[in-house]
Design a protein around this nucleic acid. Structure first.
Lengths: 235, 235
DNA sequence: TTCTTAAATTGAACGTGTTCACTTACGAAT
DNA sequence: ATTCGTAAGTGAACACGTTCAATTTAAGAA
């Protein structure tokens, strides 16, 4: 561990401590530098921005999520999915205040920390493989052709769960937890519906729509198309 | 129209022009003031913050949405819903760059422009009544007991559509439009499923979960509950 | 007209995230 | 031991959103 790495850690830990004690927005880069006993500029040597610190935290948490899912007990898909989400939320809870700051930055186009941006591509693919394991490891895993779209939809849902959880104003984010229970129930019932032939096709279509956005195969937003001219699509 | 109102309008129009030509984040309050030929401080007399300007735009757009939905042709629910969303997106398109700035601010807790915050409560209730009209005006409107949860779910979906549309990197936000077509198709098919007795109960449960968050009946986030202690709920 | 009072307006100042030209520390090659 | 190059570290400076005490303008009452 070089001297630089040690300094980076010191800065990172100082940042996390401040974030969780007084929130992300309320924490100053100057405070972090002071806590880490270094100059303001040095913090920017190791972290491109304040947002990047929250992103670094998120990366660490993704790795933990990976391990948690790997050690998930086999069982029906609905339970595996809900347990994974519940475990994730439980582990994320201490960092909620910090992660809230990430969201607002993660939705800003052009930001380095943009959720669907290029920078976070590897992180997204990593998350996709995590959810893929949730599907393939289920005792009632559906036929292989639906694995990929299911994975995509699970990841999309996961983004929504996190977003909702961060916004949930109820004490202890109670509503989010109830929503997970509800989702588990629905997903269990959906199993029967999914046996029908045409539902599989729907699943695949949905996956084809969303998948490219996550894997990064989608073309970037072209400025060539003038705004104000929405496509006249009507099935 | 008093002198102040005229000044406010001048500032607002200057802001909108800058927002749509160079984006929200890239526009400076000093630029707006200069364009409106007034001092920096005066802009803050009429708009609490830069975000408030985007919010004022959003309020204006909600009113337009209201009129658009009112003049919506009667027909099946699926089509009414999809047409309403399509009309909204089409109208919002010129302001996409501006509204992107609102999102990131709208998801920041404590912000005046928070989506689920107290300030935007009247706006949310207004949106709910709009979606209520979409449901009640449908030729195949379901029984009255499901109107309220349906309205709630439609509004929740609308928030998602807007969020997705703002993030959609495909040219012309093509994916969002395809997703609306897809949603219309699903919703049409769902009509048959909704005839089943237990689905109505599910709908109502979902509405009970989400409704309070929109209408503002939910208790605010209590600091009394220490973080890190998620409820052990497991149906 | 003059006085009074509220509305309208100003711009300097603050704290923020971020940048950058600069300095210092240190290990390896000469 | 000296040199040299890279890594590590500094802090003043910038532009930004925002605040506020102060000043000017305008309109109605006397």
């Amino acid at each position: 561990m070089t001297k630089g790495e040690k300094t980076r850690d010191r800065i990172f830990e100082a940042a996390l401590a401040r974030f969780s004690s007084q929130g992300f927005a309320e924490t100053t880069m100057r405070q972090i530098a002071q806590d880490a006993e270094c100059s303001l500029g040095l913090a920017y040597r190791y972290f491109e921005s304040k947002d990047a610190m929250a992103l670094a935290l998120y990366e660490r948490l993704v790795i933990e999520f990976e391990e948690e899912v790997a050690s998930l007990a086999p069982g029906p898909l609905a339970r595996r999915w809900a347990d994974a989400e519940r475990a994730d939320l439980a582990r994320l809870t201490p960092y909620r205040a910090t992660l809230v700051g990430l969201t607002s930055a993660g939705l800003l186009p052009g930001s380095k920390t943009q959720v669907l941006g290029e920078t976070s591509g590897p992180l997204r693919r990593r998350m996709l493989s995590i959810f893929s394991r949730i599907v393939t490891g289920a005792s009632d895993a559906p036929k292989a052709t639906t694995h990929e779209p299911l994975t995509t939809l699970f990841y999309a849902t996961h983004l929504l769960v996190i977003l909702f959880w961060l916004q949930d104003p109820t004490p202890g984010q109670k509503t989010t937890w109830k929503l997970l229970d509800f989702g588990e129930e629905i997903l269990g019932k959906l199993k029967l519906v999914l046996r029908l032939p045409w539902t599989g096709a729907l699943l695949i279509r949905a996956g084809e729509l969303l998948g490219p956005l996550f894997t990064g195969e989608a073309e970037p937003d072209s400025e060539a198309i003038p705004p104000g001219t929405p496509p006249r699509s009507r099935l």
